[in-house]
């Protein structure tokens, strides 16, 4: 059986077919959640934002004309909501830092490799903190590039900016991280 394309599923969904939307969700829920978690670094917040992303996509799917791929359109919604959520987190930095630290300890991220040296552990801790200190826009380009491996063109499409802006944001984001971590790199 030939798998329906995204556009075919979108058209069915626009006609009111809920099962078509379920198929779209099952195709992209993991990818969307991964990007959002990479941006927010908090599982509960990421789950909430992922659900909000698909909810908004469902509500607005009739306005989707196929100008870009469904995947790009969906990612754009996800990244915009996640950036808004990050701004809210920035307003409550203590809560966010505590929850982030809790997650890292809970998963015992730094103790996975018993031979990992102190220097590497310290670098990782500092790097996580430094990524969290980036502006939402800078964090978005870092995550989309490092985690998703997207091209500058695709990142620009998702964030609604030019390739040059993506290059510039990536340069300054890395520069900030490098400055904070120079002693560890």
């Amino acid at each position: 059986m030939v798998e329906a394309s995204d556009w075919e599923l979108v058209q069915k969904c626009q006609a009111g077919d809920m099962s078509a939307f379920e198929e779209l969700v099952s195709r992209y829920q993991q990818k969307v959640f991964t990007v959002i978690l990479g941006l927010l670094r908090n599982r509960e917040d990421a789950l909430e934002v992922a659900q909000e992303t698909f909810f908004r996509a469902y509500r607005k799917i009739k306005s989707f004309q196929g100008g870009s791929s469904f995947y790009t359109w969906l990612y754009r919604i996800a990244v915009n909501i996640a950036i808004d959520a990050q701004r809210r987190q920035k307003r409550n930095p203590l809560d966010f830092r505590e929850s982030m630290d809790g997650v890292m300890e809970e998963r015992n991220e730094f103790a996975k490799d018993p031979f990992a040296d102190v220097h590497d552990k310290e670098l990782r801790v500092k790097l996580v903190q430094s990524i969290n200190d980036l502006t939402p826009e800078h964090r978005a380009v870092i995550v989309l590039r490092t985690l998703e491996g997207l091209s500058y063109k695709d990142i620009g499409e998702l964030l609604g900016c030019s390739e040059g802006t993506v290059m510039s944001r990536l340069h300054y984001a890395r520069k900030k991280l490098q400055e904070k971590l120079r002693a560890f790199l």
Partner: peptide
Amino acid sequence: LNRVMKDIFESEDFRLDVEPFWHGL
């Protein structure tokens, strides 16, 4: 820097419980 960032992102658990997610949605 790129290597450590990639390691950090890859070491995290990004798995999503699919069934409860769709049910809630």
